[in-house]
Amino acid sequence: TFEVERIVRKKIVHGNTSYLVKWKNYSSKDNTWETEDDIRTKYGDLVDDFEK
C-alpha cells in the first residue's frame, strides 16, 4: 500500500487540479501527479495543510 509523505506542488490544467505527491519510503524521482479528488478522498488533511 502506498502512503503519501507530503504534497510537493500543485498544478491546474483546464480547470482540473492535480498535486505532485511524494510517497513515503520512495525517492523523489518516484513522485507522481494525482488528481485532487483521488488525494482528497484519503488524504484531505494533507491537501488542506498544503493549501494554507
Rank of each mutant, 00 (worst) to 15 (best):
L20R: 07
E34K: 06
H14Y: 09
I7E: 03
H14W: 07
Y19S: 00
V4A: 14
K29E: 12
D30I: 08
E51H: 06
T17M: 05
V4H: 00
T1H: 13
G44A: 14
W23R: 01
K10R: 08
T32L: 01
S28G: 09
I39M: 15
V47C: 04
K29C: 12
K11F: 06
V47H: 05
G15Q: 03
D38G: 05
L20F: 09
D30M: 14
F50M: 03
L20Y: 06
E5K: 01
D48C: 06
S28I: 09
F50N: 03
D37Q: 12
V13S: 10
L46P: 01
T17P: 05
S27V: 07
L20H: 02
T41P: 11
K11E: 06
F50K: 05
Y26F: 14
D48Q: 08
I7A: 00
Y26S: 14
V8K: 02
S18N: 06
W23Q: 00
T32P: 02
G44I: 10
K10M: 07
T1C: 15
W23L: 02
E36W: 06
Y19M: 04
T17H: 04
Y26A: 14
N25G: 15
Y26Q: 14
R40L: 09
N31V: 09
D49N: 12
T32M: 02
E3D: 08
D49R: 10
Y26K: 15
S27K: 10
I12C: 12
I12Q: 08
T35A: 13
K10V: 06
V47D: 02
S28R: 05
D45V: 10
N16H: 13
W23E: 00
G44H: 10
Y19P: 02
N16W: 09
S27Y: 07
Y26P: 09
E34N: 03
T35I: 08
F50T: 01
T1W: 10
T17C: 05
K42A: 13
T35L: 11
K24M: 08
R40T: 05
F2G: 14
V21A: 00
N16E: 13
F50H: 02
N16K: 15
D38L: 13
D30E: 13
E5H: 04
K10G: 03
Y19L: 01
F50A: 02
W33I: 00
W33N: 00
Y43T: 03
D30P: 07
K52Q: 11
W33M: 01
L20Q: 05
G44F: 11
V21T: 01
K52C: 07
H14A: 13
D38C: 14
N16T: 14
R9W: 09
N25D: 11
T35V: 10
V4S: 01
H14Q: 14
K42H: 10
H14G: 13
W23M: 01
K52R: 13
N16Q: 15
S18A: 08
D48V: 07
N16L: 14
F50V: 01
D37H: 13
N25Q: 08
T41F: 12
K10L: 05
D37S: 12
Y19I: 05
T1Q: 12
Y43G: 04
E5W: 03
T32A: 03
D48T: 08
V47Y: 06
T41M: 12
K29P: 06
K10C: 07
N16Y: 11
S18I: 15
T32E: 00
Y26T: 14
T1G: 13
D49Q: 13
R40I: 09
N16F: 13
I39A: 08
R9I: 06
K52W: 06
Y43C: 04
D30S: 14
E5F: 04
S27I: 08
V21M: 02
N16M: 15
D37A: 15
T1K: 14
W33A: 02
E34M: 15
I12S: 08
I12R: 06
W33P: 00
K11M: 09
Y19N: 00
F2I: 12
D38Q: 10
K52E: 09
T32D: 00
D48K: 09
E5L: 07
I7V: 06
T35N: 11
D48P: 02
D37C: 09
D49I: 12
V21G: 00
W23D: 00
W23S: 00
E51Q: 04
D30K: 13
V47M: 07
E5T: 01
V21S: 01
N31W: 11
E3P: 04
K22E: 06
E36Y: 09
I7N: 00
E5Y: 04
Y26L: 15
V47E: 02
L46Y: 05
V13C: 11
K29Q: 12
K52A: 11
D48Y: 07
K52N: 09
T17I: 14
R6T: 09
I39Y: 01
T1V: 14
V4C: 07
E51M: 05
T17K: 07
V8D: 02
R40Q: 04
D48H: 08
D37P: 08
D45E: 12
I39K: 01
V4Y: 03
D45K: 13
D30A: 15
D38T: 11
R9N: 15
D49L: 11
T1E: 12
T32H: 02
N16V: 15
R6Y: 15
E5R: 02
L20I: 00
E34R: 05
E3Y: 08
V8W: 03
D30R: 14
D45W: 13
E51R: 03
R9L: 11
E5I: 05
T17F: 04
E34G: 02
Y19W: 02
S18E: 10
S18M: 15
D38W: 15
G15H: 08
T32V: 02
I39V: 11
V8Q: 04
